[in-house]
């Protein structure tokens, strides 16, 4: 009986939540309020018009002050962009925490799958396979990176390429391709590296690795002493990803 009471209370709470949600929507559509707001806006507009005329009288004085204000704005803007960075950092942290949470939940579900597949082997096998792939990519990527760190570049490259071929739709697919290119680049095999970087840029244009791969393409051209293509790649990079760190790098290197 207690169970039932609990459930009813729970259902009531959930119902209340949903109810307020619906009511909120209705409030948005409330026409009368909208009309009123419209009127208010019109009044505001009129007020602004009045202000404008008075402002125009002060135009000359303003022009003098404008330069000062401009300077202030710049400071403000840099402050703002800094704050933006802070906020994006917070966002990253949140994202990280979310990922961590989802990781633990997948772990939990995996455990459940394991237990169930032990219990009855037929059930839920499909789900375990999916979960399995997901974990494999990360672990195998880690192993390949370990090889890269241990200067075993040829082996690491093969592992990255294999991973990229095996899991082309995974989050890490562009990373794998990029790191395969890095393996060539570190060994100063610029031609091969160039092809791989190009693949990253072309296949995963919206991925995180785009700017880095493009910048590295320029460095490959530099290694091949092809100055023209180097500059072209970097100007492309600057126009394509103007806000990336790599664009700044490219600007600094080309002297612009």
């Amino acid at each position: 009986m207690k169970e039932n009471v609990k459930k009813i209370v729970l259902a009531a709470v959930a119902g209340a939540c949903l109810l307020t949600g619906c009511a909120g929507q209705v409030a948005v559509v409330n026409r009368a309020e909208w009309e009123q707001q419209k009127q208010e806006i019109a009044a505001l507009k009129a007020g602004i018009g009045g202000l404008q005329t008075s402002v125009e009288k002060l135009h000359d004085e303003e022009m003098k002050q404008l330069k000062l204000i401009n300077a202030d704005l710049r400071v403000l803007f840099s402050d703002l962009s800094r704050n933006l960075n802070v906020v994006s950092g917070k966002l990253e942290e949140n994202q990280y925490n979310l990922e961590k949470l989802s990781k633990t939940t997948t772990q939990l579900t995996e455990r459940k799958f394991v237990v169930r597949s032990v219990a009855g082997r037929d059930s839920l096998l499909q789900d375990t396979v999916v979960a399995e792939d997901k974990v494999d990519v990360q672990k195998l990527f880690k192993i390949a990176r370990e090889d890269f760190n241990a200067k075993d570049y040829e082996r690491a490259r093969k592992e990255f390429e294999e991973l990229n071929a095996k899991f082309p739709d995974d989050n890490l697919a562009d990373d794998c391709r990029y790191w395969a290119a890095e393996c060539y680049y570190v060994q100063k095999k610029y031609k091969e590296a160039l092809e791989q970087y190009r693949e990253v840029v072309e296949k995963y244009p919206t991925g995180d690795m785009g700017p880095a791969a493009m910048f590295k393409m320029g460095l490959c051209y530099k290694g091949l002493s092809d100055k023209k293509n180097m500059e072209k790649t970097w100007t492309d990079l600057i126009s394509k990803y103007p806000n990336s760190d790599e664009a700044m790098q490219a600007k600094a290197r080309t002297g612009n």
Binding site: N85, G89, Y178, V186, M209, A212, Q249
Partner: peptide, 26 residues
């Protein structure tokens, strides 16, 4: 392997650890 650099940066408001490669990319 001399290819990457780890460093501290406060670009997001608080000092945190970052990695880049020795060209300053990625």
């Amino acid at each position: 392997n001399g290819y990457e650099i780890t460093f501290t940066s406060d670009r997001t408001g608080s000092p945190q650890i970052y990695i880049m490669d020795s060209e300053g990319t990625n």
